[in-house]
């Protein structure tokens, strides 16, 4: 069974980069173009791990984490925050909302896979 990844990012470039990297590494890749679509997709898709951007229209990354971890969906899957922001307080904010970890853009393939491995155990 492939590990199912849901990537939420409003940048097509980033989505393509993620898709290229993840599919090559053997993950099953799904994507959403903003936070709202990501949260809406989540229940039926039931991904093994979520990667989300922070700055997005409709619903930002913090909103995504809050909704996924909230009572409605009550998700327990790992959520990785993908962000150019490397400042400590943004990480702290993401974590307190329930994020599992973060990947700082620009990411390279190895650090992305390494991060996924640490939260899902998936061996690519």
């Amino acid at each position: 069974m492939k590990t199912k990844v849901l990537a939420i990012d409003d940048s097509r470039t980033i989505r393509n980069l993620l898709a290229a990297c993840l599919e090559e590494a053997g993950f099953e890749y799904h994507s959403a173009v903003d936070g709202r679509e990501g949260v809406d997709l989540y229940p039926d898709l039931a991904p093994d791990v979520v990667i989300t951007d922070i700055n997005m229209p409709n619903l930002d990354g913090f909103g995504v984490i809050e909704e996924l971890r909230g009572d409605g969906i009550n998700s327990k899957v790992p959520i990785l925050v993908l962000t150019t922001e490397s400042s400590a307080d943004l990480k702290a904010r993401a974590r307190s909302a329930g994020a599992t970890g973060w990947i700082t853009k620009p990411f390279d393939d190895d650090s992305l896979i390494f991060a996924l491995k640490r939260v899902t155990g998936a061996v690519a």
């Binding site: 903003d34 709202r36 809406d40 409709n58 809050e66 909704e67 909230g70 009572d71 409605g72």
Partner: peptide
């Protein structure tokens, strides 16, 4: 879900 924290309305229909 909405009650559990999101302030924003679903914008799916207007997307």
């Amino acid at each position: 879900i909405k009650a559990a924290g999101s302030k924003k309305e679903s914008t799916k229909s207007s997307g």
